[in-house]
Design a protein around this nucleic acid. Sequence first.
DNA 1: TGCCGCTAAATGAATAACCATTCAGGCACA
DNA 2: TGTGCCTGAATGGTTATTCATTTAGCGGCA
Lengths: 194, 194
Amino acid sequence: MKSSNKHEKIIRAAVKVFAKKGFFSARISDIAKAAKVADGTIYLYFNNKFDILISVFDEEIGKFIAQTKKLVDQEENPQRKIEIFALKHLSMAKENKSLAEIIQMELRQSHKLIKEYRKTIFSEYVDIISAIIRQGQTKGIFRKDVKPGIAKRAFFGALDEMTRLWVLSPKPPYDIEDTAKQISNMFLQGINAN
Amino acid sequence: MKSSNKHEKIIRAAVKVFAKKGFFSARISDIAKAAKVADGTIYLYFNNKFDILISVFDEEIGKFIAQTKKLVDQEENPQRKIEIFALKHLSMAKENKSLAEIIQMELRQSHKLIKEYRKTIFSEYVDIISAIIRQGQTKGIFRKDVKPGIAKRAFFGALDEMTRLWVLSPKPPYDIEDTAKQISNMFLQGINAN
DNA sequence: TGCCGCTAAATGAATAACCATTCAGGCACA
DNA sequence: TGTGCCTGAATGGTTATTCATTTAGCGGCA
């Protein structure tokens, strides 16, 4: 049995347990049980509880951001790029509900390290949006008086709030694709140059 | 010395301590020290630590929602209503940073009670927006194909994400009124009927 | 006014529970 | 038998909550 195997098993278990209980209420023994290893084994692969959380962020969220970038890069048209981003974001929330839940909850903690972490990793993600906006402004498709720094947050915030709905509800109250279309549509009309 | 005085002192101290450390890392003795009372005194006014958090929500957030409703009701024009809502929301974050911080963090916890709580109190708040949208649709000002349930979340999410920026940054990176105007402007153009 | 006794409020040290982390030993395979 | 991985009970530190004791305020009485 490869050690990497166990590392992964623990990460996967942690995603589930953190999502269900939140970081502080989750016990190491919960994670151990879910991963089917002994409590002590966890400390062979991670330094401490916090380190598990950080690893979840790094490995799972990092993967997702890379995917999104790649998808967006494959498209030329800024408007289509926006639509793709929205759809990818919401699909993630649907397909990986536990991870979405952790992003929702834990990345907003006041813990210093998490705050720093959030700034770094999320800037990278949200800046995908502002890059698209600037590109569209250069091409004359988007209004020039819209500040990319504000617009990117507005768009991300809208998607994030929809995600919250998914996370809180047992069943998706709206269709993912409809929602992505509606949100990006509204946003595109909002920043559309006449 | 009135007992209500002490209740309030504790609540105010709790807002500060929770904002700084987060609910789980905040110690009762921290709150007691900040409120200048003995640890035990807190239990004369609250059942337990969680009860303090809930009271913070009830009393402080409740106050704020009532204010917002009143402001919005005083205006007739749906577009102006939207602008007023945005400005009020962002002003709150600026003027009461600690409270905004707690809303950002704690209302997203996975704790069952908090989840329930969030649903109830936030529906009330966000439904102010959907009511405005419906009103505008009836008047023919807003697009009819926009779903109020989605649009309200998009707008709220945009504001909430800007709030997060305030909360995370030591100094507001954008001017409140500019931001409120930019966000509501973008949103209004986005849902504008032609 | 000054004193006494009573009640409610406040105190903070002691308790008790919880749980992250450690580590002495066990197991399996070469 | 030696090596490396794994185990899970024991440890120790932390902190919410309790409660025996103190303090403050008040009314009645001489």
